[in-house]
Each structure stands twice: as C-alpha cells, then as structure tokens.
Design a protein around this nucleic acid. Sequence first.
DNA 1: TCCACAGTTCGATTCACACCGAAGCAAGAT
DNA 2: ATCTTGCTTCGGTGTGAATCGAACTGTGGA
Lengths: 227, 227
Amino acid sequence: MEPDITIIAALIGDPSRSRMLLALMSGKALTATELALEADITAQTASGHLAKLVESQLLIVRKQGRHKYFQLNGQDVAQLIEQLMNLSVSINPAAIATGPADQDLRDSRICYDHLAGSLGVSLYDSLIQEGHLLGHGENTELTESGKEFFARLGVNFDDWHKSKRPLCKACLDWSERRNHLAGKLGNWIIEDVFSKKWAVKDLDSRIVRFSPAGLEAFCKKYKIART
Amino acid sequence: MEPDITIIAALIGDPSRSRMLLALMSGKALTATELALEADITAQTASGHLAKLVESQLLIVRKQGRHKYFQLNGQDVAQLIEQLMNLSVSINPAAIATGPADQDLRDSRICYDHLAGSLGVSLYDSLIQEGHLLGHGENTELTESGKEFFARLGVNFDDWHKSKRPLCKACLDWSERRNHLAGKLGNWIIEDVFSKKWAVKDLDSRIVRFSPAGLEAFCKKYKIART
DNA sequence: TCCACAGTTCGATTCACACCGAAGCAAGAT
DNA sequence: ATCTTGCTTCGGTGTGAATCGAACTGTGGA
C-alpha cells in the first residue's frame, strides 16, 4: 500500500502534465487542445493525461458545446503547485531565467486568481503599512480601518460571509519570496483592476499587463510607492 | 525546458522514495538500511534512491562512523510533504493514518551508539551548564573541569587517544531539534548506564527503557533537573 | 446533408527506470 | 590480521507508462 501522496506527486511529476498545470496556474480555464499545445504533445496524449488529472481531482472540467474547459480544482491545488515552485527556486536559484519576457512575469502575474509578482508584494506591503491588514505568518486579518477602506471602494462584506473561503490569506511569492495577498479579497482586487480596464491578461501566459495610466491609478488607489 | 517542479514532484512520486520521505517526517534521522527496510526494498535500490534525493537536495546526509544518517533538508521540504498529505486527505478522506504515539522513543532512545531524545538533550545541556563541555556548533570540546569530572567517574582518557574517533561531538536531535552528546564520550556514558543496569535497550526499537531507580541515579550523577 | 473540428479509444512502439544479484569498498569490531 | 557490517557500483531484467498514428464519436456550422 503506497501512500496517497505518491499518487499526487507522480501525477505532477510528469513533464507534460506539470506544463499543463502551470498553464492553468493563470486561473483561466483552458480547453484540451490549448493544453495539448502548451505541453507540446498531441491531442490524444493530452486527453489521457487530462482524464487522469480529473479522476484524481486535481482538475475539474466543464463541458461547453464541443469544448471541454479544464481548471485547477480550487485553491488547495494551486497552493501546492506554488509551494513546489518555492522549493525548486530555493534549491536551484539559477533556474530562474533572466530573460526579458521573464521580467514581465516577475513584475505582475496571476497566481491562480489573485495578483502576484513584485506588484502583488508591494500591494501587500502597502496594505500592512497603512494599517489595513495585519499579517501573522500565513494568516492575515483585515483591520477595522481595512474594512472601512475596502467598503468605501465598493466591497460588500456581508455577501462574503456565506462563503467558507478565507477573506484574506497570505501566499508566498516564489519570485520575491515574500507574501502577497490571496483569498477572496485578493481576488476582488484583481477583478476590480480588470473591470476598470487598468490591465489585461496576457493571452497565453500568466502575465498581467498594466497600461501606464492603469498602473498609475492602481498605485495611487492603494498608496503604492512607485520605484 | 521542463519546469523544475516536475523533477521534485517526480522524486516524491515514487512509492519507495515517498515511503522513505514519510518515515523521515517523524523528524528522526535514519540510516540507509533503516530506510531500505521502511520502503521494503533492498539496500542497493535504496542507495540509488537516497543518492538522488540528496543530489536534488531534498535530503541532507551526515556520515557518522560507517553509518549514513539521512534527514529532510529543512522545514521547507517537510512543509511540502505536509501540504501533499493535506491535499491527499482532502481528496481521499478514507485514508487517515494515525501516527503511533512514540512518546517513549522521544524520551530516550539510542542514536547510533549514544543517548538521544529529551533525556540526551538534557544531559548535554547539563554538561554545558556545569562547565564540563564547550559547544560551538557541531564541534564540542571537553574542558579541564570536564576531564576531571569524567576521570573521577572512571574514564581513562589515555587509552582513547589511540582511536581516531572524536572524543566529543554534538549530534543534532530531531525530536528535540537540539544537540545531544555523541562521540566516544557519548558512547561511554550510555555503556556505563547499561553496565550499571540503570536501563535496557528495547528489543525491536531504539527505545532505551530506564528503571525508576536508574533514572533517578542517572539524573543525580549528571545533575540533570527532573521535570 | 455534408463537412470541419474537438475530443476519445485502440493498438503498437519505445524508452526510462525501479529493481535485484553479485561483487567491491570502507570502517569498526575482535 | 580477519571478520562483520553498512553502503555503493555494475550489469542485466522486466514492467509500466508516455507517446503517436489511425480510426471513431459527437457537436456545430454551411
């Protein structure tokens, strides 16, 4: 009887599958063919892999017309992958390529459903600085001042109490090795950014591309010091 | 360019290796043979696995005599495995392994050929406290006062100079996360305990079982404060 | 109705790697 | 010195799994 962690780790421990999972870290739901392209394998092979990932409940799938949309099965899975990246970075720091495309990824990217990268870290720092957030390790708490601040921005906290997903959560950022904001509030912030058209998701990567004006507005809104 | 997380996940995703890693999650440092037994494979196969785990820096190894002690490379690795266990439980709640309450093992056990566990740590602390021992990291030195103290107990240091084995050495205790005394002196102490019948070795484990009177005598001899 | 496209199933191939037996090496023990 | 023990190296075997070509199902559009 082999431990269950073996099965999960073995699923991630295949190059094609881990490429798919990384692609899904953008939070977007992708079709089977898109994932096959991402992993650089044929559709047949991808189909087999995806079936396994769904069966093991690492992914969930939604059928829409003749497409099948896959996404990570919740925050737990995303967090596990993030943790794996953390460890691989701390073991092999040279592995972080320093290409120009990579720089954008480090600046601001999607981590499942919230903002990561140096901008995400700056946001977190600023919220702490302003007294809106209290951070103790992995757990984070919104202060009264923070509740007021976000209520003024249009957040309706009452609606959120129904969900069991934590309001705030710190997520360790692999490129910065510091916390950024996850949880429902982290998700709200990035959705707010998109709805205001301050930034758009890059088509086939996890990069979040801010417009110059959007970046300025964002930094002003959250009192982030520009570098 | 395959992502690094693939490599790490693949390492964990082998039944034999994950059994070893789980065994090491107890915090204990284990030898190659112990791990081979744990994984139910031959020593040769285990040796190959362990080499990979060390090369990839998931494990660290310490050579002590002809034994090789393996342990998890820090908290990061332990945390990743913990995370994997969490996910597998949330996916498959049926498999809940209840860890054996090895309190006796934590209290006092054999570590290669000397005393470990909370009692071993207390002994080390007391020797430092009394000024018999000087500890700088892994290296430890017997003071003049210490030499006198042990000479009075019957140790003949002259005979020991022939051996190249270090007289004193600190050995990291993983249940306690603190040093205990290894080296020839550490061995002498535990042999002394056995010869005085203050304690006996448990048959199939590394537990050292003190008699009530033996424990009292031991603590008095080394001025260990009883808790 | 026919075609195009998304995804799956089947069969065959190929290859990596976990595994063990045997032998070798190193470090204590006797 | 000789034996025992812990670990490693080498060579050969076998199995599992990833892969793709080809053919099939099902959906949507022309």
